[in-house]
Design a binder for these strands. Structure first.
Lengths: 213, 213
DNA sequence: GGCCATTGGCTAGCGGCACTATCCAACCAC
DNA sequence: GTGGTTGGATAGTGCCGCTAGCCAATGGCC
């Protein structure tokens, strides 16, 4: 398949595909001669993943390149690749460690992880970007005057742990070993908008039940 | 308090505060004379909320203005105002109703809501922006070849319903009636990054437990 | 009374991002 | 041989969230 067909079947303009090629989000096609390249189903699949990450997952192009780079890195084992890919995901500013709200947030997050017995998370702790973004979000709530402490967060964390168990169960049954890293990335990034939407729908539903329309 | 102090205490530059005033995210201070205005604790609080919505919640400035406009609209009742504010929140592109993935996604979402008995969600259904964004996200997963159907989503929805019940419980105990709309908006927008971060931490933890580091 | 910092209001500019548009010479299919 | 397509390159576009600078009026301070 050539550029025009790849564009046709993915619904992405040729200009944008060229842009993704330039940015290294998509591997170049098999070069037939100076002016022609051949793309296969793998390219189509990757292109759809890229679009989903960017448009649905709202991942910046540069981040997507980094994440996919780890997914494709054959020199590493599966677990490491996945870890590296997920490590590259989060965006958002650095917390200002001087800020008392950040200090308080960090303390509560650490207490939370200790209480839950999430040892992995605690060991990697202050380094992990996910941990960092949790601290930033909790700090924002604290700054607004909401008393977010470990006890309040714990039930939420337990619920998200149940969600995570489901995620991994799904992964085990629905992905072959070869494609597991890619599937895991897709699951992490794309389940989130689904969860968010379900969360808001549930809020609307529960609110309507309690207080009427 | 004057502009400089508001800037000092919020950590937001005067230039940015002026920008927010221009954009209508922040009510003008009480004008003392042509060149001086007085701001109060309410302004500081609102400014912190605006910052949190934009920086932590990743809400575009234009959307934040719309949402806060509903929060402040005294002509409406509390429930309506909250509904209107939440209605204004979601971003993201319109689904292409021609796309078979979108058609399939819509069908599964409708089946899901029917199965759960979320009648409120079903009635407001195709109009609601949240519903729309759920369809878009599910469509992306389907397009990638993941078989996301109502049966698969139902347990996730149940879990998010539990989360939503906690959210509303928190709201009932921690917010006075006057500030409830503002708190609800803050909760909807700012709990999400927390949930997302907890979700990813839980994934890492569970993955480490199952497969080692 | 003189002086300097600060104010609201204004306009213009900036840097980043995700494309988009155009031009080009090479080439291949008909 | 001619029209359409290709990869490659470069420049431009539109939006967004600020940021910077100028201004005349004013206020507090000495």
């Amino acid at each position: 398949m050539r550029l025009a067909e790849l564009s046709e079947r993915s619904g992405v303009s040729t200009a944008t595909i060229k842009y993704y090629l330039r940015e290294g989000l998509l591997a170049p096609g098999r070069q037939i001669n100076t002016t022609t390249a051949e793309y296969d189903e793998g390219h189509l699949r990757r292109l759809r993943l890229v679009r989903a990450l960017i448009q649905v997952g709202r991942i910046p192009v540069a981040t997507a390149r980094e994440v996919l780079g780890h997914v494709d890195d054959d020199s590493l084992g599966r677990t490491i690749r996945l870890g590296a890919a997920l490590w590259a995901l989060p965006q958002g500013a650095e917390p200002d460690e001087e800020d008392p709200a950040v200090v308080a947030a960090r303390r509560e997050v650490d207490r939370l992880l200790a209480g839950l017995g999430w040892e992995t998370a605690r060991e990697l702790s202050p380094l992990s970007p996910v941990h960092r973004s949790l601290v930033v979000a909790v700090a924002a709530l604290i700054r607004l005057g909401y008393s977010w402490d470990a006890e309040l967060m714990a039930p939420y964390a337990e619920l998200m742990h149940q969600v995570a168990r489901r995620d991994l169960d799904y992964l085990e049954t629905h992905a072959s070993d070869a494609e597991r890293v890619e599937t895991a990335v897709a699951a992490t990034v794309l389940f989130e908008p689904v969860l968010t939407a379900l969360h808001r729908l549930a809020q609307e539903e529960e609110s309507a039940r309690r207080y009427g329309l």
